[in-house]
Design a protein around this nucleic acid. Sequence first.
DNA 1: AAAGCTTTGATAATTATTTGACAACTTATT
DNA 2: AATAAGTTGTCAAATAATTATCAAAGCTTT
Lengths: 213, 213
Amino acid sequence: MDSKIISPAVIGRLPRYYRYLGDLKDEGVERISSQELSELMKVTASQIRQDFNNFGGFGQQGYGYNVEYLYNEIGKLLGLHENHHLIIIGAGNLGRALTNYSNFENRGFIFEGIFDQNPALIGKKIGELTVMPMEEIESFILAHSIDIVVIAIPKTGAVAVADRVVNCGIKAIWNFAHTDLNVPDGVVVENVHLSDSLMKLSYTLSTKNNSVD
Amino acid sequence: MDSKIISPAVIGRLPRYYRYLGDLKDEGVERISSQELSELMKVTASQIRQDFNNFGGFGQQGYGYNVEYLYNEIGKLLGLHENHHLIIIGAGNLGRALTNYSNFENRGFIFEGIFDQNPALIGKKIGELTVMPMEEIESFILAHSIDIVVIAIPKTGAVAVADRVVNCGIKAIWNFAHTDLNVPDGVVVENVHLSDSLMKLSYTLSTKNNSVD
DNA sequence: AAAGCTTTGATAATTATTTGACAACTTATT
DNA sequence: AATAAGTTGTCAAATAATTATCAAAGCTTT
């Protein structure tokens, strides 16, 4: 409907707002001003107001923002008002960790299946799920209305698996493989490159040592 | 020494350059131009040259960049020429997954210890490591010259643990807890908020459904 | 119900980041 | 040895993101 383009910077901040507002709600806080929230989150009040205004503005002059309302509205923006059905490709350490990370389910992210190519793992239980063979990915996606695929396998197989699930109509991939996936327009990939993250930390650590000491 | 401030945007791109250059090196590619690299990485050649120039420029006019040299130089920038010693706080699913993710060791990130507060876990083997009780964190950090602490526990305990390790002189924290850590100046925190990442994916998925369909 | 206080939403100014253009230099070719 | 082709590093221009400012509007108090 309103196809206004929201900048990536703003989208990237939404989950953090959501987190803080959730905490405030749990603490029983009813209203908050951009000023108060800015002190809590260590950002400028101007940025907060600017961000929310991208979506039409959720506040009221002279009052501020109603915490619960704002929390719900941002939740809707983030697509948390509807359930998402996920499968995990790769039952290694990371795949297992994600499966058991029950936190996601509370937000409507439901893990429906887990797949691996290692015959020794197939049939094993991981949390509530049973590891299935890779051949069944396509049929499972169609049968269970999967809308998000989590890739948690080494980079060698990742690109091929991504192609397969994209061919099944998957439009969203959460990629933990240490490689970039080349997907067609209309498919979103959210990368979690753990090594990259660790290197960034290492960069800052090294630089600081050189300049301060 | 040269305390020129590098923009966060540039730093954030360094690991990706490093990854691509490593792949090129492994393929036996000797030299590459910013033009070729830009096509590979789907960024502008101008950005690549601009980025490298922040550090003095690694190329040669008329020739391009020597892949191996550039790879090594970026590695040095990222602090990968020296070993880092890490401990993991939290031997849950995520802590275990990280411990066994041997990839990091190849880059000089050495996991030296893992801690948990659950008595049932203490003494258990995880990969090469044995789970230790939380009380021993401080002494272990000092005895083993730990320079990076990985926080992989629920958010309730995360802030307190961060305070403890900061008091031990730790300057770098890799934080997987679903909360922001409030650390003093001079301490770097690199956050990996998995839920945030998943929500971003969900945002784009929802938005696309609304606008395209 | 009026007056003063608060706070948003919107606009403008500032700052940061990305892209484009080209001189200077290197390599390759004739 | 001279010329042509290729490529960086740098500067300038354009775009994007953040911050500051303030009028307009809603609350709160008397």
